[in-house]
Simulated assay, not measured.
Amino acid sequence: MKITSKGQVTIPVHIREKLGFVPNTDVVFEVVGDALYLKKVTIETNPGKNLITVMQGKATVKMTTEEIMGLTRQDG
Score class of each variant (00 low, 15 high):
53 T>N: 13
1 M>P: 04
17 E>V: 08
13 V>M: 11
32 V>N: 10
44 E>A: 09
14 H>L: 07
40 K>G: 02
24 N>H: 12
4 T>F: 02
50 N>R: 07
75 D>A: 10
19 L>F: 09
40 K>I: 06
68 I>W: 04
44 E>M: 11
49 K>A: 07
69 M>I: 12
9 V>T: 05
58 K>E: 10
57 G>C: 05
76 G>Y: 08
59 A>P: 00
24 N>D: 15
22 V>I: 12
30 E>D: 13
42 T>N: 08
5 S>Y: 08
26 D>E: 15
36 L>P: 03
32 V>T: 10
54 V>I: 11
24 N>A: 13
51 L>A: 11
9 V>W: 03
39 K>I: 06
74 Q>T: 06
52 I>R: 13
18 K>Q: 12
30 E>C: 07
13 V>A: 15
29 F>D: 06
71 L>S: 02
65 T>N: 11
57 G>A: 05
6 K>D: 15
62 K>N: 13
34 D>C: 01
33 G>E: 05
61 V>I: 11
59 A>W: 04
8 Q>D: 10
66 E>L: 05
1 M>Y: 08
74 Q>H: 10
43 I>K: 12
75 D>M: 09
55 M>V: 09
46 N>T: 04
3 I>M: 14
71 L>R: 12
46 N>L: 13
21 F>S: 01
45 T>G: 09
42 T>R: 09
54 V>N: 02
25 T>H: 03
29 F>K: 09
75 D>H: 10
20 G>N: 02
42 T>I: 11
67 E>D: 04
75 D>Y: 08
49 K>R: 13
31 V>Q: 14
62 K>R: 14
14 H>I: 05
69 M>N: 09
22 V>P: 01
41 V>W: 01
2 K>E: 09
30 E>L: 14
63 M>V: 05
41 V>Y: 00
8 Q>N: 09
31 V>M: 06
62 K>D: 13
34 D>M: 04
16 R>W: 01
56 Q>V: 04
11 I>P: 03
47 P>T: 01
36 L>V: 11
70 G>Q: 15
68 I>G: 00
2 K>P: 04
52 I>P: 00
20 G>T: 00
23 P>K: 11
31 V>G: 03
60 T>V: 09
42 T>M: 08
36 L>F: 06
2 K>Y: 06
17 E>G: 05
3 I>Q: 10
76 G>W: 05
35 A>D: 14
33 G>C: 03
37 Y>F: 15
65 T>R: 12
43 I>W: 06
26 D>T: 05
1 M>F: 07
8 Q>P: 00
2 K>G: 06
17 E>H: 07
12 P>R: 14
32 V>G: 03
48 G>W: 06
23 P>Y: 03
9 V>G: 01
58 K>C: 07
53 T>C: 03
